[in-house]
Write a protein that binds this DNA or RNA. Structure first.
Lengths: 217, 217
DNA sequence: ATAATTTTTTAGCTTTGTCTAAAAAGCGTC
DNA sequence: GACGCTTTTTAGACAAAGCTAAAAAATTAT
């Protein structure tokens, strides 16, 4: 498999992760910042290799085979992210781009040894689950901070948006995985929240609350 | 820089490391298992980017620029090899192929953090020197086992040939970096040696002795 | 139901890195 | 210096993966 094929599989996997429907050519093109015509070409090639179900004009979905391969790429990506943060001390907003490269290294033995070296983590530094060597994914149930009510408290367990900008914002406000957050007040007008983090009161917008996963406590 | 360009630079670096002369198109083609015509095409491109000195039919050598880049690739390769052996417990004969992939990961910060994580090693698992972040290489003087005389002893500090086959042979005979070896007798007919390794006597061929680096002790 | 719009595919071109076959340059021998 | 052999380069082709522009299918609106 080429890097490009792997990137397409991964994109299709992410786009079908929640909806579980066929995904459109345009959606893939947009996510990969490429042109629909390029996507069509690749879909034909992936269909040829029995990695996707593809019928002209009908959208596309992964075959069992394709899904397993996609999960292995996600596994590699997330394990490398753990390595970068835990072992090399990278800040969590810098690991994605490097992991995008590392995820294409081909060696099953390498990734399994890395997994062991890291202590078989089940989540990456953004709280996303790491598939095991068989592709099994354990998802922990989590809710958005915006779903909590007054006086409820949650522990931050992940981010929905993992862009550099959002992660840096969280760093600046001393919110990290494991941080406890209590909802103090909710503004009816713009749904902004006043929350308590480490004994400090902070006001955050609805957009922030909508991208932060917490576990009720 | 593409992977292919990096591989050419690395090959030219290795071929010019000792002789310090221009290297021929054919020599590069042979080492890379490709065709001379492909090499010519690439040399033009590298010359264009001022990474090599190239004049038709005259052979090729690295520019200062090209040499530095080549050293950075070698640095990455060897640091990753240390990681694989020291941290992930890979046997020394399995790391080369994986390091060939890892050496192309682009992130200066990554490689410098990796260097620190590994304790700034100066040699890779085969005894080859690791260039520092500025490209500086400290070579320790070492001689071939075949250059030792009767009753002299050396500590194994590296291998000249680092093929899987040779490394496995050494493993089988319990010879590793750091192993002490004493020359017992030398056969005049085929230059085979009787040596003492760990209180055990072993007979090795001239070819083996010619590919094992030692430090006099 | 037909027209307009959007989405997707096709056709044809570009670049990168490879190849084969043929031409050109360099070298060794006399 | 000419002849033949080896090495190197050129010319032209191909596969991968992208692009643009145009055609075709699907969808939405009238």
């Amino acid at each position: 498999m080429t890097f490009s094929e792997e990137n397409y599989l991964k994109t299709i996997f992410h786009l079908t992760a929640f909806s579980d429907q066929e995904v459109s050519t345009n959606a893939i093109a947009e996510m990969m910042a490429t042109k629909a015509s390029s996507v069509t070409d690749m879909l034909k090639k992936l269909a040829e290799k029995d990695l996707v179900h593809y019928k002209k004009y009908q959208g596309v979905s992964l075959t069992a085979n394709g899904r397993l391969l996609a999960k292995m790429i996600v596994r590699k990506h997330r394990l490398w992210e753990v390595f970068l943060v835990e072992k090399l001390d990278f800040p969590w907003d810098e690991v994605h781009d490097i992991a995008e490269q590392l995820e294409h290294i081909k060696s099953e033995k390498l990734i399994n040894k890395l997994d062991n070296f890291l202590g078989n983590p089940t989540e990456d530094p953004h709280g996303d689950p790491i598939p095991d060597a068989y592709g099994k994914i354990i998802k922990t149930e989590k809710l958005l901070l915006s779903e909590l009510g007054f006086n409820q408290s949650g522990i931050c367990v992940g981010v929905k948006d993992s862009s550099k900008e959002f992660l840096k914002y969280l760093d600046k406000n001393q919110i990290a995985l494991g941080t406890q957050i209590e909802i103090l007040t909710k503004e009816d007008f713009d749904f902004s929240l006043k929350i308590k983090v480490d004994e400090k009161e902070v006001t955050i917008s609805n957009k922030i609350a909508n991208n932060l996963f917490v576990k009720l406590v």
